[in-house]
Amino acid sequence: MNKIVLKNNQLMLSEIDFTISLCSKEKTEFKPFQLEIKVVKDTSLLIEYQNEIPSKYDIQIIVEPNCSFELYEKKKEQETKIQYRYDISEQASVTVHKFQEAKKIKELDIVYLQGYESQIDYDLKAISFDKQKYDMVIYHCQSNSKSNISNRLLALQAGEIHINVTSIVYPQMKDTNVIQNNRILNLNNKKHTICPNLLIEQNDIDASHSAHIGSFDPATLFYMKSRGMSEKEATKLLLKGFLQMDFIPSEELEKIIDQYWR
């Protein structure tokens, strides 16, 4: 897998092959650090953020026609502002897997499904201890484009989460597929918001959205406890299920949960 490390407003490491080209611009007084990632063949990339100071990034991902791109991202305990822009061409697909255990985050993701049969599958899992704001806008600019957005966030301690997802389908964009699933697991009784917006100007499409903010389901806990599990064991297992991602090893996830959930 290709890998880049971003640290303190800089590109610290890039281990990439011919499938990806990178172009970066240093941070200036007026603009954040900018990075352009161009995908020319089927490939995958891991982005790790290792900030020690509050940082800001502007990242553009361009995926050429017929390419399949898997993006993995890991962030940990840092104050970060990020803007992602995805330009996805004809018959290209992007799969995003993000795992964040972080304090303050402000993130904007703008997705342009520019090509016929272009597609994005977006899967975010995050543990929040402080204010986190996620804005996403998905533009379906071509027919047969697909977006499947899943945001699952866990609020602990002082975590406050605000999610805004807007999917836009323009007129004449037939057979598009728009899915949004947003869920906040509220374990700190703070106020959280989810705004799932579908702005659709075409009849012939499939669209669905869900938004759920709440704690553990008492009926599920009762079922688990009826199998002998204590409340602590049951909730730990549910948290693991809520946060699990293929690229986060099970042992690592268990450690993270043990660290924060007592």
């Binding site: 389901d217 599920t220 079922y223 599990m229 204590s230 549910l238 809520f242 699990q244």
Partner: peptide, 24 residues
């Protein structure tokens, strides 16, 4: 107790669930 409507648990595999149950 076997439930009339057994609960569905997202993200937790059957084998992990049963292992956690037996471990208790």
């Amino acid at each position: 107790l076997t439930f009339q409507n057994p609960m569905e648990i997202e993200g937790v595999s059957n084998v992990d669930f049963l292992k956690a149950a037996v471990s208790s």
